[in-house]
Design a binder for these strands. Structure first.
Lengths: 256, 256
DNA sequence: AGTAATCTTGCAAAAAAACGCAAAAAACTC
DNA sequence: GAGTTTTTTGCGTTTTTTTGCAAGATTACT
């Protein structure tokens, strides 16, 4: 308990605090804010309403959501977002405290990161700027970025440094989004630099887990990352016994 | 406990005191200032209003907030953006093709990156996620990110890996934003992890160039990054012979 | 449906700001 | 140095802002 008689907080200060918390947690409860800021619920409510009118956040029953989280103003298509959430939830269930996890970028992985429970303590390692940014919002996750030359297309680190560093490590889990996957060729990608890094990611991890919405199944890209039997699990928004996944099951994919 | 000067304070003196307190604490209550300065609330209010009109602080109900603190969570304040552009233009003039450049993050550096000519071919190296994102938008710049543990506050890589990597390299130029700089202590910062990295950045570069809008001059933070004579150039939005810069000139700063 | 939590609305007390005014201090003029 | 002007400061009053409280409406949840 803090028994320190603090100097009273200014209204603006309080509102700045709320915004900061929101940037960090994406959502916030009025009751929590009351306690942390030591003011009545009415005051918090008024602050939230005011901030909402100024477009700084989105007010909802019981608290508020960060604008970026709520309004995916990006070109992200809403339809596949639902599917990505389903995938993300499956992924989250695999993650336990204190794991060392390697992750690629992509919008699906971003959903995973957003869904991670706030009390999870784990170490995430990534080569993706997008993943790193999102991971930083989580209060208890340690984020390690693999440095190196950045690819302008993929916004990830490629090249020798990242690969060298990866070869020295061993991860419990590796999550990877996909451009191309099919039952015959396994995981493929069109960008040669990216392929090199993803290969290194495969080698550095005990369990290699591929995330893909069903639309992307059965597509093949130029360069091969790994064969079907090197993928430990394929996670889609479908049920594992869905008929679309039959070829993959036959090819020996682990399905979740 | 602050000892109150017996001789009445001059207005100018009082306002400077307010600014100093603000640089130190980021916020200040009118009532506290009344007591410390031994004047009426009206006087304080008038001082704060005046300073607010001059853009030295942000006046709020009950007191004032420092500009930097306020600007962190809100949108970039348009007022200082112009100044940052002036600084950015000066920086851009220093950069030539094929240079190897190290840069920190911050909004001023972001302006620099945005102003870089599209046909410039150079290699930029950074520990800042913000800078990396911005650099990637440039068509001809090669971007190298220094990997390592990411600091949640500063959104930059800190810790041994980044520092080790920095110690192996030699940059033509190093640009760094500032939290605190003054003629006596040199460059300072409040975040100890950040200080370590910035020290390493200093060591790794031939020319160390500090960027600071004039508001941030004469503020001192807890931890020291480097002494005045280790700074090759200080760039502000002011003319080099501006009287505000006189103490710096006398302390041996190179001014641009 | 019924319960608990949350929201709206109106109100009142306290704090702070704005305003006009006059005294005091400082700057300027001769 | 005396007198005038300008600036600065403090005080009382009025106005606005902020905050908490309470009663009733609305919403979420089982």
């Amino acid at each position: 308990m803090q028994k320190v008689a603090m100097s009273p907080m200014l209204k603006k200060e309080r509102q700045e605090f709320i915004i900061k918390q929101l940037n960090l947690h994406n959502k916030i409860l009025s009751t929590d804010l009351c306690q942390e800021l030591n003011v009545s619920e009415d005051t918090i409510r008024r602050d939230l309403n005011e901030l909402s009118e100024n477009g700084k956040l989105v007010k909802v029953h019981g608290g508020a959501l960060s604008k970026s989280y709520y309004g995916n103003t990006n070109e992200e298509d809403i339809y596949s977002l639902d599917k990505k959430r389903i995938i993300a939830q499956k992924v989250v269930n695999l993650i336990k405290d204190d794991m060392l996890i390697l992750t690629s970028g992509g919008t699906t992985l971003r959903e995973v990161i957003r869904l991670l429970p706030k009390n999870l303590t784990a170490t995430f390692c990534t080569v993706s700027l997008m993943a790193a940014e999102e991971l930083l919002k989580h209060p208890n996750i340690e984020v390690i970025f693999m440095g190196g030359k950045l690819s302008k297309d993929a916004k990830i680190c490629v090249g020798g440094d990242a690969i060298l560093k990866l070869s020295e490590m061993s991860f419990d889990l590796c999550f990877i989004g996909t451009n191309g996957i099919d039952a015959k060729h396994g995981l493929t990608d069109s960008d040669l630099e990216v392929v090199q890094v993803k290969k290194a990611m495969r080698k550095a991890s005990k369990k290699f887990i591929v995330l893909s919405i069903s639309e992307k199944l059965n597509s093949v890209c130029r360069a091969n990352i790994c064969r079907p039997n090197e993928i430990d699990y394929l996670i889609t928004e479908l049920e594992p016994n869905d008929e679309q996944l039959l070829p993959y099951k036959q090819a020996g994919f682990g399905l979740l």
